[in-house]
């Protein structure tokens, strides 16, 4: 009985949270138009969300690509199909690893920072103070950050994939002796612009949307104490990771399911 009671209570709590999150989302989206006329606000946030995530994405992409080159080579050489290494590296990066891994890194690097920042602004009454100055904190603080995250994500994912493909090329062609021309031409023939590249970008846009939303909402909804903010930050990373992986499955099924 106790189990069902707590289950019911949890369900109710989830619903109210989802409701608050939806209201928050609507406010956040409504604020976008007022942010667009002040690009300075977005630029500032793109700096803290995008530019500061650049390095981790770049290095991770390079290493993931190099590992893919190595592993792919060992498997493909068993079948004498080393020439398709480029296809394997590019397809796995562009379709899956690029959007997913960069979104996970983004949630850890930028998402947690956003949650902590907003949570602390709430704890130190900055949001409340802004409201009393007749400035809507959702429009002034939340919307620019959302837009910056949403726009940065596909750029970071593309960077991740591009760097990864080059990393795979360095290992595959430079160290393991796969033919350079075959690496690129096979990749060229097999990777479809619409099916692979565009779908990858769509994925990263969805992940950027969901991750930034979760991060900002958790910060805004945080209990305004040190412990509350730390919990909210943890929730951001955990919930973002779950959402990214779950949505990735759904999106993949929708995009590549008919093939």
């Amino acid at each position: 009985m106790e189990f069902f009671r707590s289950l019911g209570a949890n369900t109710r709590e989830s619903f109210t949270k989802l409701g608050r999150g939806s209201y928050f989302l609507i406010g956040m989206l409504a604020g976008i138009s007022s942010v667009l006329v002040r690009p300075n606000l977005i630029l500032k946030q793109m700096h803290s969300v995008g530019v500061l995530s650049f390095l981790i994405i770049f290095i991770s992409g390079l290493f993931v690509g190099m590992v893919l080159g190595l592993q792919g080579f060992y498997i493909l050489s068993r079948f004498g199909a080393e020439e398709t290494l480029g296809v394997m590296v590019a397809a796995s990066l562009v379709r899956e690893l690029g959007p997913v891994v960069s979104a996970l890194l983004f949630a850890g690097r930028a998402g947690s920072a956003l949650t902590a920042e907003i949570g602390l602004m709430k704890a130190t009454e900055q949001l409340s103070g802004m409201e009393m100055m007749a400035i809507d904190p959702i429009k002034r603080i939340i919307s620019p950050r959302f837009l910056a995250g949403f726009l940065s994500m596909p750029l970071l994912a593309a960077l991740f994939s591009a760097v990864g493909i080059m990393g795979g090329q360095i290992v595959g062609c430079g160290l393991l002796g796969v033919d350079d021309g075959a690496y690129w031409s096979q990749m060229n023939a097999a990777i479809d612009f619409q099916k692979d590249i565009i779908n990858g970008v769509i994925k990263s846009l969805v992940f950027g949307f969901i991750t930034t939303w979760i991060a900002l909402f958790e910060g805004y909804d945080a209990v305004p104490t040190a412990e509350g903010v730390s919990r909210a930050t943890t929730r951001t990373v955990v919930n973002s990771a779950f959402s990214i992986l779950g949505l990735d499955f759904i999106l993949t099924a929708l995009m590549f399911g008919d093939n």
Partner: peptide, 19 residues
């Protein structure tokens, strides 16, 4: 309400300065 608030100043206990 926002128009009214422009004419109401409030000093928070912590100051609530934007950090």
């Amino acid at each position: 309400l926002y128009t009214l608030r422009k004419r109401m100043g409030m000093l928070f206990q912590s100051g609530a300065l934007l950090t």
